[in-house]
Simulated scan of single mutants.
Amino acid sequence: MTAVNSLAANRTPARVRLRPTMQSDIDFVLTLEHDPENLPFITPWERTQHEAAIRFPDFRHFIIEAGQDLASAGFLILIGCRSPHQALELKRMVVRHKGEGHGRAALRVAKKVAFDDLGAHRFWLDVRTHNHRARALYDTEGFAPEGLLRECVRGASGFDSLVVMSMLQAEFADRRALALELPA
Rank of each mutant, 00 (worst) to 15 (best):
P36L: 09
Q23S: 13
F59I: 10
P20A: 12
L39P: 05
R19E: 15
T31I: 08
I42C: 00
P13H: 14
L39D: 04
Q49N: 08
T48I: 07
A9S: 13
E33A: 03
E46G: 10
R11F: 13
I42T: 02
D35Q: 07
E46C: 09
E37G: 12
P57A: 01
Q23G: 13
P44I: 06
P36M: 04
R19P: 06
P44F: 06
R15H: 15
M22Y: 09
F28M: 09
I54G: 04
R15S: 15
R11L: 15
I42K: 01
P44D: 08
Q23N: 12
T43R: 00
P20G: 09
R55E: 13
R19T: 14
F28S: 08
Q49F: 09
T21D: 05
F28V: 10
L18P: 03
H50M: 05
F56M: 11
F59R: 12
W45N: 02
A14D: 01
R11G: 15
F28Y: 14
I42L: 04
F28A: 03
R60A: 04
I26A: 05
T12C: 15
E46T: 11
A52G: 08
R60M: 02
P20H: 11
R47M: 06
T48Y: 09
R47N: 05
L32F: 02
H50E: 03
T31F: 01
R47K: 12
P40F: 07
P13S: 15
S24H: 06
